[in-house]
């Protein structure tokens, strides 16, 4: 009798428990993963955060993953994501070739991948790549560099991650203009991995090796700020002109204050929001999406800096 009473008490409890779980499952939102190369740079924080916010606004549960600029860390994230029922991945890759393997694994598992800002060298592994038009942006920057520096100057270049296509797109765009002028001489070119502290060290060593540097072109704004700190420390502020790329807030403010000459505004929010919107359309069944979607870059300099801030155009 006691057993019967106990069973009568337990069975409804079990049923309620299962039913509750099922109800919870039904109610839980579909999930999108946002995998960012590094959250150690404010520009990428904005990219990731904007993607998360847009996904949430579209009715998804979004989770942000930090790959810490490490392809194997990114691979770990992908393993977890593929085992956890995510419906799409918005990825800012760490490496054009290394990240392609992760994107391919996701694609094989039926999870669509959308690349933001950085591309992978395997277009079929992701649905769409939303990328800044770095090459054109750096052509504009190169033209402005010639305008500011004139036809005769000595400069150095600080590159980003050598495995990232953006590094070379920026460098080649810049050089496609500047190399047309024989009087503009590049004294040194070195990578600082898009990192502010590394750029400071690189700039310090470049200034020790070359005492006649007139300008530095940096592959992103974090490195431009690092280079500026080194120049300031060496008492050469104003003598060595700094050019960056990204449109990060601290760099835009530095342009306003006359510390930096120019940067290229990349619009991370536009890229993130577009990626989230395309992922939503894909999840809802749309398949006719563009493979690549460049986003135009705008030149920001002292004359037009009032129009820019908060990682975009102020009226935006």
């Amino acid at each position: 009798m006691k057993r019967l009473i106990l069973a009568l008490l337990i069975i409804p409890l079990l049923l309620t428990g299962c039913g509750g779980e099922r109800a919870q499952q039904t109610k839980s939102k579909p999930k999108i993963a946002v995998v960012i190369s590094t959250l150690n740079n404010p520009w990428f924080v904005v990219l990731g955060q904007a993607a998360v916010e847009r996904c949430e606004a579209l009715g998804y549960e979004a989770t942000l993953f930090d790959s810490q600029n490490n392809p194997s860390k990114e691979a770990d994230h992908f393993d977890n994501i593929l085992a956890s029922g995510y419906q799409a991945i918005l990825m800012n890759p760490t490496d054009a070739d290394g990240s392609a393997v992760n994107a391919k694994a996701a694609s094989r598992a039926g999870v669509p991948v959308f690349c933001m800002d950085r591309e992978i060298n395997l277009p079929g592994a992701c649905v769409t790549q939303i990328l800044s038009d770095n090459y054109s942006g750096c052509i504009s920057l190169g033209q402005y560099f010639v305008e500011v520096m004139g036809r005769k100057a000595k400069y150095v270049e600080i590159l980003g991650l050598v495995g990232d296509n953006n590094t070379w797109a920026r460098s080649r765009g810049f050089h496609s203009v500047v190399d047309c002028f024989e009087g503009l001489e590049m004294l040194a070119q070195q990578s600082a991995d898009f990192d502010q502290n590394k750029a400071m060290e690189v700039m310090e060593s470049m200034m020790q090796a070359h005492h006649d540097i007139d300008a530095v072109f940096c592959g992103n704004d974090a490195m431009a700020m690092g280079a500026y700190q080194a120049i300031l420390g060496a008492g050469k502020a104003g003598k060595i002109k700094v050019f960056g790329f990204d449109g990060a807030d601290d760099c835009v403010n530095a342009i306003r204050e006359g510390k930096v000459e120019a940067t290229g505004m990349q619009f991370p929010k536009t890229m993130a929001e577009t990626a989230a919107t395309l992922a939503d359309r894909y999840i809802k069944g749309e398949r006719n999406l563009p493979k690549k979607m460049p986003v135009a870059v705008e030149l920001v300099h002292r004359k037009n800096v009032a129009q820019y801030g908060n990682f975009g155009k102020i009226q935006d």
Partner: peptide, 18 residues
């Protein structure tokens, strides 16, 4: 642009045209 492996290849066409 979709016919190219990556944007570097696409931009190399610009440079060649230039």
């Amino acid at each position: 642009i979709d016919d190219f492996r990556n944007t570097m290849d696409f931009n190399a066409v610009s440079a060649a045209m230039n």
